[in-house]
Structures are given as C-alpha cells and as structure tokens.
Design a protein around this nucleic acid. Structure first.
Lengths: 162, 162
DNA sequence: CTGGATCCTTCACCAGTGCGAAACAGTCAC
DNA sequence: GTGACTGTTTCGCACTGGTGAAGGATCCAG
C-alpha cells in the first residue's frame, strides 16, 4: 500500500493545495491530467505521474519520495563535530557533539538528563551546573540550523525542529 | 532538445551501464520497458519513465535532473596546480595544490588538519604554523572560483561551495 | 494561597588554546 | 630586478570548558 506521508495532489486542479505542501516541505506526488504539462518540481520532495497510470507506478514514485522526506526530517551528527539539518550544518565542540548525539539518536523523544550527562562526561559531570550551562550553549548553536532543545522538567531534554 | 548531461539508460538491458553512472554520480534517466518494474532510484540524480512515453515527459524529467546535477558538481584539481569549479579555474602553487587535493577528494566533508598537512609536507610541516598560513592563502584563491574553506575547530577543514 | 524547595536558565568571569592574519625574510625563475 | 612561492615570527581574537551566582519557573506542604 501507499506510504502514508506522501500526499497525492491532482494537477492542475489542486495547485493551491500544492503551494501549501511545498511551503511546509511535505512530500507530494502530482497526478497530472492526461493532456496537461507537468510543472517543474521545485525540490526533490516532489514528483509527478501522468494519469491514468498503473497503480504500481504511483506506488513506486511515492515509495521513492517517502524515504527522502524521512531523511530530511532528521538531523545528523557526523564524527561528533558536525550537526546537519536540512542542508545546513554547524560545527560543534567535542563536548557539544557528545551531548548532541543521544538527542539526535532519539530525535523528537525525551532523553534523560542523566543520559546526556553521561554521554558528555562518562565519569560524571565536573559540576552540578555544567550540563545546564553547556546545554544552553548547544541550544544556541542548534537554533542556527532550525533545531530546538526543549526541556521536560524533571525528565530530560527533547530535540525537535523549530 | 534534451539537456546533454542527462544520460538515457535502457532498463533492464543496460543495468551494467547504470551502475557505472551511479558510481560516478552522473544524472541518468531510465527508460523502463513496458512490462518491467522500475528499480528504486538510489539517489535524487536518477529518475525513470516507462516507455513508450511521450517525448515531452522524457524531456520534463531530464530537465528536472539536470539542475540537480549541476548543483552537485564537485571541484577538481588537475596536476596539482589547477583548481576547477563550475566553468571557472585558477592556478595553484604546488603546495596549495597538494593541500587542495584531499579537500576536493572529500568535498563537503571534514578533512583532518593532519591529512591536509601530510598531503603538503609528507615529512611533517616545517613550522607548527605553516599549515594555517598556507591555508589562508589557499582560502583566498579558492574564493575566486566560488569555493569556501571552512574551519571545524580542533578537527580540520571542510571545502564547500559558497 | 503562600512560602519554601527544587529544578533549570542565564549571565559573568577566567584560563587555556586553536586559529587567523599581517608582516617580513629567504629562495628561485625569468 | 621583479614577482611568485615558501618559510617564520608575532600578535590577538574567539572559542572552549569550567565555575559561581542570581533569578525565574514549577511544584508541594501546610
């Protein structure tokens, strides 16, 4: 069956809806009416198929878009020193990289303070305060690439797109 | 007419040729024989169309791939003394050429200071500072062809398009 | 609802260090 | 000599990691 996250859009009837989807970066597959010229896709999350079309073709194209969208949705940490998100990247200090790793690994979910702390200082943080201060710094950096670290009081932190 | 840089590949007859094109990162459009399942594209420089197809459709898909490929063009170093990028080129000194090579080979990724240093001075840099100074000079040159060397503190350097 | 405890944010400061940049000098080719 | 290439020194900024402290936010006991 069709991957749920790819939206089918009738072209050119639903061009308004298409603009909306483009703006929010959602993957979309245009169903182009037989006699119409397909529009030029504005990014790699868009594709089109001329209808009537074989159902397998529609699925194949949707299945191509879905993982692309998924990959763009998640940030990545390279070698503990680069934080990538949506074609942007920033350098992280070694400590920040170590803190970011568990947050990226569990993107969108709460990560216990303890886990972040141990990732940065396996032998324990130097000060009770250290984690907070460095989280502040990581926060400011992450914002530069559209990422936000949110606090869940008494639980931990959560990394998400702004 | 068709953008020249997009290669048309008959599928599945020319699958060997496809692997070659994939390896070298060339944009390619698969002409899928009517009864065949299209393969899953391995990157966004690949697309497919089921034949027989409207010529306009083939062109539209090729026209989508071409600019993507153009945006992904990598710089090249010739004979350690010429740096090419997007129809522009500059001369490099032998030392700069040697420094540029690993950066170009790993375009867009972090290259350790050490690697750049050893490429320029296999026996070790003459001074602790030499790499920094020559990197400054390479930087200025690279900017002339739209390339930027970015520093990742305590790690290395990264070459990217401006 | 009120005051305190707890958790967290934010700021200011410090010491150590990596790196940028300029300036200058030596060498070599033409 | 002139200019390109390379080596060397020096200065200083900005980043990093650590620390203390002030204060805000939230929760809870009473």
């Amino acid at each position: 069956m069709l991957p749920m996250d790819v939206t089918l859009v009738r072209w050119p009837e639903e061009s308004a809806r298409l603009s909306l989807l483009q703006a929010e970066g959602a993957p979309r597959l245009l169903l182009v009416r037989g006699d119409t010229e397909p529009p030029m896709p504005i990014d790699e999350l868009e594709d089109w198929v001329r209808i009537p079309a074989d159902d397998r073709d529609v699925r194949a194209r949707a299945a191509t878009l879905a993982p692309r969208a998924a990959a763009r949705l998640r940030p990545q940490v390279h070698d503990d020193d680069l934080l990538r998100f949506r074609d942007q990247w920033i350098a992280l200090s070694p400590l920040e990289g170590a803190m970011a790793r568990p947050l990226v690994d569990r993107f969108g979910a709460v990560v216990a303070r303890d886990v972040v702390s141990r990732s940065a200082w396996p032998a324990g943080p130097p000060t009770r305060n250290a984690l907070d201060v460095h989280m502040l710094r990581l926060r400011r950096r992450a914002r530069l690439v559209g990422l936000e670290v949110r606090t869940v009081r008494a639980r931990g932190y959560l990394l998400q797109a702004v």
